[in-house]
Design a protein around this nucleic acid. Structure first.
Lengths: 138, 138
DNA sequence: TATGTATCTCCAGAGACTATAGGTTTGGAG
DNA sequence: CTCCAAACCTATAGTCTCTGGAGATACATA
């Protein structure tokens, strides 16, 4: 039996965050000690690892809740699961595209600025003021 | 003189967001009509475009506040401006790297799942449960 | 037993908005 | 000029995913 602190150390998830996940219904309410402290088992450790992993991948709480619910009906076909992960893949790719454009623009902006001319001539400020100086759209 | 709604339409920034920016000190408190409604000029339109543009690039409110303050001392050298944009470029690059890892992992996960087998055998669920199945770190 | 660390609950805050409620002003049609 | 709908005002609360603190209780060790 693990305390909430043990669970926290083993998963890298902070203690208040574990309680938050419980409150959000991602973790089942843990058993309690006589003194009302949460006690966890290996199963909870795996569940929390699942949650952490899914969060790292950028899935939001409701998507994770959905996946957990689906995983508890193991004999249904997994189309929904596939859809959730697939949808997320699409949004990750979109984010990457956007950030790449930003990177290019920031590079361009910064490269014109060597830090030793006056602000009134600074390309950073001018670029931010005037979208027309941008190469692409964003 | 533009109303807040006009300003909103011209910049694509929602009305409550404009008021929020004023509250956060990014926009100066606007002049008011006799009936206490905000009235804007071209100058404000440019300022708001600056803010919108910087936000689109992912700069946060405090960075933008800093840039605005700097831009009001146009005869100082622009080293700080350069630093703010450069720092941001670094963080954008880091985000891109992380997202690319996620993309790879999601691709791998989804490619194993054709949607018609049972959830108990589903690679998505198993991958999320067991970090050990991942290729890289994240 | 005493002490120090860990845990409990509840509540507030962060960041960047967004939405609602209830009241006032504006601008155009009749 | 009057009327009405749309736009505006303020103030407040909610979103999402945590994170941190206060004050009280439990546990582990010397």
């Amino acid at each position: 039996m693990l305390s909430i602190g043990d669970l926290s150390k083993r998963t890298g998830v902070k203690v208040p965050t574990i309680r938050y996940y419980e409150q959000m219904g991602l973790l089942a309410a843990a058993e309690r000690s006589e003194g009302n402290q949460r006690r966890y088992e290996r199963q909870d450790l795996e569940r929390l690892a699942f949650i952490r992993h899914a969060r790292d991948l950028g899935l939001d709480i409701s998507a994770i809740r959905e996946l957990i619910a689906l995983s508890q009906h193991p004999h249904q076909p997994c189309g929904d699961v596939d859809r959730i992960a697939g949808d997320h893949l699409v949004s990750v790719r979109e984010k990457i595209e956007k950030l790449k454009k930003l990177e290019q623009e920031l590079e361009r902006i910064v490269s014109h600025c060597n830090g030793d001319h006056a602000i009134e001539d600074c390309y950073v400020i001018r670029s931010l003021s005037d979208h027309g100086l941008c190469d692409g759209e964003h």
